[in-house]
Design a protein around this nucleic acid. Structure first.
Length: 271
DNA sequence: ATCCCTTTGAAGTTT
DNA sequence: AAACTTCAAAGGGAT
């Protein structure tokens, strides 16, 4: 409740203007490197859509976006955010940016350089948890304190990609439709559903993701995905590589053995 | 308490 | 350039 209120308020403040030329095809971007993530045989390819777009790495519209999002008059009194668990239809997408609604992103400090100085949802403490107590009791050396301060810097998260946005919106729906609760299983279903989406449906999410990246670039001009590299600790690297290596990535119809068989108690519509 | 699993996509690094 | 790696979310399960 509190979360949603905060996020919605953020959404309202950061309302996005409609993409110029609404009704134009959005700008999905093809996977750049990962062949395994290409839609498998039988799944509509996205590439024909991509030719509508000028560049695989569209440069952000310079200056006006952030101004618009800050000064844009509120369009609707409805506080339900894009990711409201109850709404769910992309057809009603407000022009918002999803990471403003990230549950874990409401902590953090203000947005650097942001005119409204609103805590930005993409900023989280490294631990993901709020630091309630001063951690330095004065017992550490300067170097240690500096080191610790460095590691406690808020983390600016990556903007969500199209599929992540789709997952965020559809997860609750899938969970409601089946008895599964484990995210790994839910994500498999969502992956299948993603491939089953029409190009137009997917394009909505690609467009949203593009806007996310644009705004992220504007808010954090110097930020790089590299900044977050190595921040996740990995328990068994080999095992992780095996399951997460690009070339071995499972695709529709070729899921790992473990998940090959459809879950028996799932209604067909879920899969 | 923290990482793994599982998905796709973006972007980073390595070969 | 291509291949490979990491991290975004989520939350139950494993360590």
């Amino acid at each position: 409740m509190y979360k949603e209120t905060v996020y919605s308020a953020f959404n309202l403040l950061m309302h996005y203007p409609p993409a110029s030329g609404a009704g134009q095809p959005p700008q999905p971007q093809p996977p750049l490197h990962n062949k395994a993530s290409q839609p498998p045989h039988g799944v509509p390819q996205l590439s024909p859509l991509y030719e509508h777009f000028s560049s695989p790495h569209p440069s952000p519209a310079p200056t006006d976006i952030s101004q618009k999002q800050v000064h844009r008059p509120l369009q609707t009194p409805d506080l339900s955010g894009f990711y409201s668990l109850t709404s769910g239809s992309m057809g009603q997408l407000p022009h918002t940016v999803s990471w403003f609604t990230h549950p874990s992103l409401m902590l953090g400090s203000g947005v650097p350089g942001h005119p409204a100085a609103i805590p930005h949802p993409a900023i989280v403490p490294p631990s993901g948890k709020q630091e309630l107590q001063p951690y330095d009791r004065g017992l550490k050396t300067q170097a240690e304190a500096k080191m610790e301060k460095e590691t406690k810097k808020p983390t600016i998260k990556k903007p969500l990609n199209a599929f992540m946005l789709y997952m965020k919106e559809m997860r609750a729906k899938v969970i409601a439709e089946c008895t599964l609760k484990e995210s790994a299983a839910i994500n498999q279903i969502l992956g299948r559903r993603w491939h089953a989406l029409s190009r137009e449906e997917q394009a909505k999410y690609y467009e949203l993701a593009r806007k996310e990246r644009q705004l992220h670039m504007q808010l954090y001009p110097g930020w790089s995905a590299r900044d977050n590299y190595g921040k996740k600790k990995r328990r068994s690297r080999e095992k992780h590589q095996e399951s997460n290596t690009g070339g071995k990535r499972s695709a529709l119809g070729t899921y790992p053995e473990k998940a090959a068989a459809p879950t028996p108690f799932l209604p067909l519509t879920v899969l």
